[in-house]
Nucleic acid binder design. Structure first.
Lengths: 335, 335
DNA sequence: ATGAAAGCGCTAACAA
DNA sequence: TTGTTAGCGCTTTCAT
């Protein structure tokens, strides 16, 4: 006889009773094994179409959903991919990227969940373990010790690698720099966001700008850091102006908008006094005054590429070296 | 003899071998049961401090992390709370809220993961099942059929209820309306976001504004919808102007900024021609031209309240009716 | 082509 | 106070 461990309090809040694969098997008149084979579409099993349909039907009729924990436990791996998003703010650009990645992963049967890595949140490896993620993606490479914790927490794929990161970020900075240089600016500035979670990305982009400067034979960019706040940005703008910078590349559109606000506070006008270029092409970029020149990329593409790398890693294949999609310049009035 | 199901390809990408509770038990020289009791801090078990420490030490030394799937499977519930975030954009306000909720939940041993409910993403119940969430939180009440799917997918708590929502949203709209009314405006407008995911929240806030109007004895607000794009917003502004609206409450700061941009395009200036008030107090609100008057609230508080309701629901208790923290007006130059 | 049965790592009732 | 043991729902090997 089976024990019943349910406690007496059967409240309305309790989850509905779950349908198990045994229920489906019974309804279809087959064994659980067969159900598993059919539902997982296992290759190399010759199951007659008729049986297949019977199982599929039963599953649909009962609204069967495999119990993820049980499956993960038995199979030794989950279908969960964890995305760690750095400290706020999450701009619209990031949201789009996340969504595209999720869609691409979903096509491979993987589920993406995201974790906002706030200062006081629980450590990423804990979250990874809690959701039993088999892959973890970040926005910039994780420190080696974190990578190891993640592995121990069950993640078999951890991205991005330093190489991935450089390959993705630098061309963007390079493009920003080249645009400004191409319009005749000779003294370039770079606005880094104060947000620490974005630092690593920003620094890679800055390297791209620096490369552009070197190629053009001009001094490396003057880097300043600014919070998303007019007063602070004004200070940054003053530093830039002191160095007679005439064109500044901002880490992203939000930072760029802050720079624009800082300039306003200093009585400077863009692009006449200083030209500003952002990255991301967020909706508010065109609403800025003046409208912001920025770098746009196809997030769909980027997300898809990331997903491919994850899928490849999970299936043990070496990923085809992902070719990054080409960023595009959106010329507006701020440069 | 144990079977070894590992396939031959032991690649560098594979997750490190996991430490199990049996390992800890062995290291501590006790049984798995004792380990379980100690690590879960089960009340009513009198375990000598000495043994406790021995187990704790062993666990720490081995960097043991309970296997979430196994635990969930055995215990019948997971520690996962799933937050479904509506379609983009995720403003900074939302990010803060998420982070605070996560922190508050973490204090109760729960892990929050978020899912961006994009148009093409997988359906929420699928995600809920995939991560085995025992609670699901949204930004506005889920349709009844979705609630049922979620329950069947294993969620025992689903929030918010319609009541929660109204209690949280309406006072905000009311406050916006009262501010404008208090400054003498007699013809109020309301700007809804085009984004469908935000519709439900927006409509509740609109009700709040309507209430404020009724109390003041003026006509209900003229509602218009606008995308986050200057051209579209200009159209909305024209509609408002046609109805001789002199003050508009925007759903949130981003919408408000779009309205401001629309006004600029129409040659209107705020607050002289039309006053604008937002909600959220996002960083860019004060960077807008003119600086945006808005409603600010303590996200920490809101997140904490939400978390309490979840915890209460999960433990079967009826939540203490959450008292919503008081929103605060931030007066800037747009009104 | 299908089924029986052995676990995956953990929890919890029960026994000692 | 601690250990034994029976599952949780699923996958997968092996036998039929």
């Amino acid at each position: 006889m089976k024990r019943d461990r349910r406690t007496g309090d059967e409240r309305s809040m309790t989850a509905a009773k779950r349908v198990t694969s045994a229920d489906v098997a019974r309804a279809a008149g087959v064994s659980r094994t067969t159900v598993s084979f059919v539902l997982n579409d296992r290759p190399g099993q010759s199951i007659p179409e008729e049986t297949r349909q019977r199982v599929l039907d039963a599953a649909r009729r009962l609204d069967y959903r495999p119990h993820a924990s049980a499956r993960a436990l038995a199979a030794g791996r989950s279908d969960i991919v964890l995305l760690s998003v750095p400290d706020l703010p999450i701009g619209a650009g990031i949201s789009r990227f996340i969504e595209e990645t999720a869609t691409a992963l979903a096509e491979h049967g993987l589920t993406l969940v995201t974790h906002l890595a706030g200062a006081h949140g629980r450590p990423l490896p804990d979250v990874c373990a809690a959701v039993n993620a088999s892959a973890v993606i970040g926005f910039s490479p994780f420190p080696p010790d974190v990578v190891q914790s993640l592995r121990r927490a069950g993640a078999s794929v951890v991205l991005p690698s330093d190489g991935d990161q450089a390959a993705a970020m630098r061309p963007i900075g390079r493009m920003q720099g080249e645009h400004l240089l191409g319009r005749g600016h000779r003294r370039i500035g770079y606005a880094l966001p104060a947000d620490s979670g974005l630092k690593a990305m920003a620094e890679e982009r800055l390297i791209g700008v620096t490369e552009a400067c070197r190629r053009a034979g001009v001094e490396p960019p003057v880097a300043v850091t600014t919070a998303l706040e007019a007063g602070d940005a004004a200070g940054a703008v003053r530093q830039l102006a002191d160095e007679s910078v005439t064109g500044v590349c901002a880490f992203n559109d939000e930072t760029a908008i802050a720079v624009l606000a800082g300039m306003r506070e200093c009585g400077l006008v863009a692009p006449a006094d200083i030209a500003v270029i952002g990255v991301d092409d967020i909706p508010t970029a065109q609403l800025a005054v003046p409208a912001l020149t920025t770098i746009h990329f196809d997030l769909r593409e980027v997300g898809r590429k990331r997903a491919e790398v994850v899928v490849a890693g999970l299936s043990g294949r070496e990923p085809a070296r992902p070719t990054w999609s080409i960023p595009q310049l959106v010329q507006r009035s701020s440069t």
